[in-house]
Design a protein around this nucleic acid. Structure first.
Lengths: 247, 247
DNA sequence: TAAAACAAAAATGTGCACATTTGGCATGAC
DNA sequence: GTCATGCCAAATGTGCACATTTTTGTTTTA
């Protein structure tokens, strides 16, 4: 029994690039969705069983998420969902604000009608979502607006950096709940576009700055008392493991 | 001899966090130094022997460097030193330029005499290095100036992003040799500080922009014909392995 | 002769079996 | 009752033995 040959069933235990991605996406999704609460411990053995994959695979994904700073890795003590402080959140928002100031500076030199049209089209979508009260779409489109601004520059480095910031802040809003009131940022987004159209850099930056300060002001520290470590099985209830062990 | 126990130093064959770091630093250093030429293949077995550690350890470090985008990882095909195109380099410089515009925008709102004094002190160092013809120090200090600017904001996210850009561009200059002429950027750095002191945002951004365009203009595509895959043993000749196998 | 086909060798990827470390819990001392 | 100490179970980290893929070198074929 010691020298069992390990000829495990169908898929084989070897080489499955898609499996990594599936686990990665599942955990990432749970993180972004807010299903995984801050402070939750992500141990390898339970995850391995839940997803029906080897522990090594879980380990690799966990460390990858740690490298992306989406999980907090402590040597010999595993992975936890980070519990960002209010300062951390402010730091992310400030970084976004500073970055966008630079982006606008560069953009006013290269605006053309096509860009303005595209941005206006996006604003129309945002307004439509807000009008019909679709909060999820509003949040998504609201973030997408800033992505559009950066991507207008066509710089991969900057786009990646923004994506990093956004993914982190989207996790944070689930902790610091930017409240229930509507995003109400559409008008401010419109003001930015208008300033861009007029090639008025100073105004664009001022409006953008106001916009961020406005958003930041809505952050509030809920509580740090009841993070409540959840049951991982229920969090990932949706996933269908290849072969979960019987209970 | 085949079953050597690998009794590294005190511990045992297990758990040595410092060993990872040593390998990581060695490879990173070779990358930044330019000793590892672009396009070089970094295979696991030879590196494992050179450093006298297990292949798994090498593998972990390689993947970490890949996650940091310092190495190009291709599934099933290993790691290579990236061969940045001229567009890649321009992209990094542009990102730095855009970021610095944002940083300056934020900085003019918070400048104080202490900051100006610190920056001026740094400029003095730069000039001293240039005067005595210390090219290595000039390059280092020249990069440090921009780091100072960002760190004056005290934002960890922005600092990290700049560090990422700088480490990448420093690798690139070794490919596109920004020429031998002196850095000559000291005056431009001084102009930025001067504009900051005067709280003149428009001038600060303009000067910074000119500075970057100036630097970018010096980039030139040398050749892509002779990358020459090197012998890894000679590249890492300095490292002293715990136990290198006999030849 | 050049291209295609094949075989051997090397390199990468992965599961598993431990070694090491951490955390919890019971036992004992003050 | 509280704190310290020592064990035991669980979790993390690592080397190793393959499986799989890629690469290289040789032979065959048009």
């Amino acid at each position: 029994m010691a020298t069992q040959r390990r000829r495990n069933g169908q898929g084989s235990g070897k080489a499955n690039p898609a499996e990594d991605e599936a686990v990665y996406q599942a955990i990432l999704h749970a993180l972004l969705e807010g299903t995984l609460k801050a402070g939750t411990k992500l141990a390898e053995p339970p995850l391995a069983e839940i997803f029906g994959v080897s522990r090594e695979r879980i380990r690799k994904v966990l460390h990858r998420l740690g490298a992306e700073r989406r999980l907090e890795m402590i040597p010999n003590r595993g992975a936890r969902v980070p519990r960002p402080t209010l300062d951390d959140v402010r730091s992310v928002y400030e970084a976004h604000r500073v970055l966008e100031a630079g982006v606008l500076t560069q953009l006013v030199r290269h605006v053309d009608d096509a860009l303005i049209d595209r941005l206006n089209a996006h604003l129309a979508e945002e307004r439509a979502a807000a009008t019909r009260g679709d909060r999820a779409a509003s949040v998504r489109l609201s973030g997408a607006f800033h992505v559009y601004l950066v991507e207008a520059l066509g710089n991969a480095e900057l786009s990646r950096f923004l994506a990093d910031l956004l993914s982190r802040s989207s996790v944070m809003v689930s902790v610091y709940e930017p409240a229930t009131d509507s995003i109400c940022a559409v008008d401010e987004h419109g003001a930015i576009v208008e300033a861009l159209r007029a090639r008025d850099l100073a105004r664009a930056i001022a409006v953008s700055r106001e916009h961020f300060i406005h958003v930041e002001s809505r952050l509030h520290l809920d509580d740090d008392a009841a993070p409540a470590a959840e049951d991982l099985t229920s969090v990932f209830a949706a996933v269908k493991p290849k072969r979960r062990k019987a209970r």
